[in-house]
Design a binder for these strands. Structure first.
Lengths: 296, 296
DNA sequence: CTGTTAGCGCGTTCAC
DNA sequence: GTGAACGCGCTAACAG
């Protein structure tokens, strides 16, 4: 121990890892790192992994020519002791590997036996619709997420079943395609503005789209919520600071990362490649972007 | 090669890395991973590191009890071939190590010989002030970043020198303390509302603060820009979608990450631990949050 | 140009 | 309880 202090010896982790057959770091596979939506999730991951002695390796599948190959590379190279997947667009075949590396799905993904952390997306969408209906809205529009995304699907289903349960019809020209981003919210707004018969409320499947939508109609001189009500999904930090403050479905993003990390560490420690999936509840945050249409 | 295909052999990177004395990954030291400001920077980093064959390791100094020790750990463990530091609050002593691992500073940091990538912060602040003055504003308030931060300092200096060059005085009660976050923008707004003699314009050292400020005064029934003009700094994605769209200083965040990555790779390839620093220019984005006070 | 060998720095085991 | 030796899987250097 004196020699350690004198020579300034530090253990070589490459050698230790080689010997112990582990890397001490876990990989997060993110569909688009530039999307600020992931920053809090990654912070949650890091907050659990770091005290547990794991490093956080991040790969952006968006910029990668072949995400599936990339995943296979990490699974077999021994560079990661576990993987958290946030990208719902990876082919199923990429997940059916027998590498022995634990995987946790942190995006909504139904048809895989892998453990997952997900948010009650369908229920959140239903809550939003029921809130609008309770406020007297019957003409409700909807902006979707990107096609093929599992979040898009489950939120759409939740919205749809709530609508039909309430006896409300969803018109095709009141459905706006989207990709969860700000810009497509703005273009949905332009389509809304061009409509002869406009819905009195639009439920956007993400806060960013809701924000883009609100901004664009406001730039056109339309008042929110007097002329159109808007509900978002996510409760990103900026939502409460918009004018009007955005009514939305709160999704605890830090928690998603933390839970995923805990499940993964549990799998690594026990050596079993399965675990209980978790569903994180959502919550309606009532603010000022929805008009009360009920007569007094 | 046939045997490779038959047995499904994949090279073990731990063993390779041990032998080659490199890890194949780069560490990014981020002050607060939850801050969406970094997402685009990290995406830029990833976009050049990934094709170059490097993995991206991320450590959040915010959640770490001892960031300096953490840095030392990574520098000496051999787990990273290079480090990009975004945290300007690390003690100088932590950087003066002779580990042989290249370091690039990607936050503004003046008194270190390490190569850095920085943005023309002082100039950006000066541009904002000159724009407000050109629009006829003479009573200008300012919201700062967190104390001790190098960005805070250089933006403050740029603002101050532009003010005095224009013969404008900066009143103490028109300076609002901040931390670059949304919430403190809102509290600055409450202080502005309580002022007997209010500035006609407020320049916020970050877009998030500007957004929080605008939202809060608008919630109080104040019109932007009719009753108060606001200028931000950063040009975050949401700024153009606010109502009114926020006039701000554009800072290319993806580029910061890309440049830092390029410099670092150059240092690794050549083996020299020094490199030219780079300054990235900024640009005024004129939108609708500044009123024209000049008489027609 | 192909085949063999030494050793990267550690953790584990086996002998004392 | 302390110490020596082996091997994790690869790459680089060297011999044939």
């Amino acid at each position: 121990m004196e020699a350690v202090a004198q020579t300034g010896y530090r253990i070589n982790h490459m050698a230790r890892n080689l010997r112990r057959q582990r890397s001490g770091s876990i990989l997060a596979l993110v569909p688009n790192l530039a999307n600020p939506f992931f920053s809090q999730i990654l912070a949650g991951l890091s907050a659990v992994l770091s005290p547990a002695g794991y490093g956080l390796l991040i790969a952006d599948t968006h910029t990668d020519p072949n995400p599936a190959e990339r995943l296979a590379y990490y699974l077999h190279s021994g560079l990661a002791d576990g993987v958290v997947i946030f990208d719902g667009t990876l082919p199923k075949s990429a997940l059916q590997t027998r590498s022995g590396v634990p995987i946790v799905m942190a995006c909504e993904w139904t048809d895989t036996p892998l453990p997952s952390v997900r948010v009650a997306n369908a229920e959140g969408a239903a809550i939003a619709i029921r809130h609008l209906a309770a406020m007297g809205h019957r003409k409700i529009g909807y902006q979707t997420g990107p096609r093929g995304n599992v979040l898009t699907l489950s939120r759409f289903e939740g919205m749809q079943s709530a609508m039909s349960a309430l006896g409300l019809q969803l018109r095709d020209d009141w459905i706006f395609d989207g990709d969860f981003g700000l810009a497509c919210g703005a273009s949905a707004a332009r389509r809304w503005l061009a409509l002869a018969d406009r819905p009195t409320a639009v439920f956007c499947a993400s806060d960013e789209m809701a924000c883009g939508f609100m901004g664009e109609v406001q730039h056109a001189g339309i008042s929110v919520p007097d002329e159109v009500s808007v509900v978002g999904f996510d409760n990103i930090e900026v939502s409460r600071h918009l004018a009007p403050a955005l009514t939305t479905i709160h999704q605890p993003r830090g928690l998603i990362g933390e839970r995923a990390a805990r499940i993964l560490i549990g799998m690594i420690d026990t050596g079993v490649l399965t675990a209980e999936s978790e569903v994180i509840p959502v919550e309606l945050i009532r603010r000022n972007s929805v008009a009360d249409l009920r007569m007094a």
